[in-house]
Simulated assay, not measured.
Amino acid sequence: MTITQLSYVLAVAEHQNFTKAAQKCFVTQPTLSMQIQKLEDELDILIFDRGKKPIELTEVGKKIVTQAKNIVNESNRIQDIVDQQKGFIGGEFKLGIIPTVMPTLLPMFLNNFVKKYPKVKLKIEELTTEEIISRINDGHLDAAIAATPLEQETIKERVLYFEPFVAYTPQNHRLYKQKTIETTDLDVNDMLLLEDGHCFRDGVINLCKVFKDHNEDKFQLESGSIETLIKLSNEGLGMTLLPYLHTLDLPERSKANLRYFKEPSPAREVSLIYHKSELKMQIIEALQDVISGIVRGAIAFQNVQIISPLSK
């Protein structure tokens, strides 16, 4: 039994196709098939049911894949140990970022990080929290930046910053004349929300649920982007809540519509998350150091109330 054979098994389990798995592993399909066959012969079992389309794992195959993930992860740790011993911070690093963080945070830290760690090849994807959790667990992401806590046993979290919620109220809205607002003023039924799949949307709903019952049928409108919510609000279609960093680059005429919460300000916790196997920790720590240093100067709020991103 070899690490290579187990890697091939994981590739076929993921793609449910020998040809696609071979392409992913940069080997020929006959080579990959032969190695998996050798492993099955050695164990005297079938890992895959080749009669199914697409290919499926057998019951024992499912257990083998679970163990194979652990073994391959632990084998990768050896290179990590060597890199850390040499003080090397480099190589490919796959990072996921949720959509409501990507457009504001990435421009703040990316240039600094690339200059400070030129040997790191960052591959960044915008993904939902659900996609991020799945890809971290499958080994397809090294880390991600997301709203936390996520309460996932397999995932560790390092808090980067707390980002307050800020109300954006058009002139025709009932809260426009108030200088500051309280969470008890919120009513989800006159609020513009992000569409399903965004954890910031769930945070807003959780914030409103604490104080008022809501009827999802009354939601006026949902959108896929915060920028669209602002434009719709400007049209008088309702208020919305924004993450604080999104308010920094608003034009002055739009900033007149911002209303801050009385302390403690409701806020989301934004963290760097990664698998509990803790691979590539030297790069994770470098990211945390760069991001925390930059954001610390942008967000001065101290007294905050963390709102869960989990859908309840």
Rank of each mutant, 00 (worst) to 15 (best):
Y244K: 11
V188F: 11
L242K: 01
G297T: 08
F93S: 03
L105M: 13
D83N: 15
V60Y: 00
I284F: 02
N303Q: 11
K38R: 15
K218G: 03
E235T: 02
Q67E: 12
E42D: 15
K212P: 03
A21I: 02
A13W: 00
P243I: 05
E130A: 09
N206V: 05
K262M: 15
V290N: 01
G91P: 10
L110W: 08
V159Y: 01
V290C: 03
L242E: 02
P99D: 00
K121C: 11
A13T: 00
V12H: 00
I133F: 06
Q85S: 15
E42K: 15
T104Y: 05
E263S: 15
D41F: 12
L160H: 11
N112C: 12
K212D: 06
I3C: 03
L6Y: 05
F301N: 10
I226E: 08
T169I: 15
E252V: 14
E131G: 07
T240S: 12
Q35A: 12
M281K: 05
G87V: 10
S225D: 04
I306E: 01
F211A: 04
L287Q: 01
K63A: 11
Q67H: 06
P309T: 13
Q282K: 09
Q23R: 08
A13L: 00
T104W: 00
F18K: 02
Y260I: 10
L237C: 04
V101L: 10
L310K: 13
S277V: 14
K280H: 11
E56M: 09
Q67R: 09
Q37F: 13
A144F: 08
A267Y: 07
P103A: 02
Q16M: 07
K94C: 06
S308R: 06
L175N: 05
K177M: 10
I64A: 04
I299S: 01
Q302W: 02
L175Q: 07
R253Q: 13
K262I: 14
I98E: 09
L242M: 04
D196N: 09
R158Q: 14
S292K: 08
S277R: 11
E278A: 09
T58A: 06
V188W: 06
E227S: 14
Q178W: 02
K20D: 11
Q282W: 02
D80N: 13
C199W: 05
L245W: 01
P30F: 06
H198C: 04
K20R: 14
V204A: 04
I230N: 02
T228F: 05
S223N: 08
Q29H: 04
I306L: 08
A21C: 10
F113S: 05
E252Y: 12
V159R: 07
T240P: 09
A286D: 08
Q178V: 03
F162R: 14
K69A: 01
K280T: 04
M281I: 11
L250Y: 04
V159N: 06
E263H: 09
D202W: 07
A256C: 05
F26R: 12
D138C: 06
L57M: 03
Q16H: 10
Y244Q: 12
E153K: 14
D80P: 08
I124S: 05
K115T: 11
Q152S: 11
R174E: 14
Y8T: 00
N73Y: 03
L141P: 02
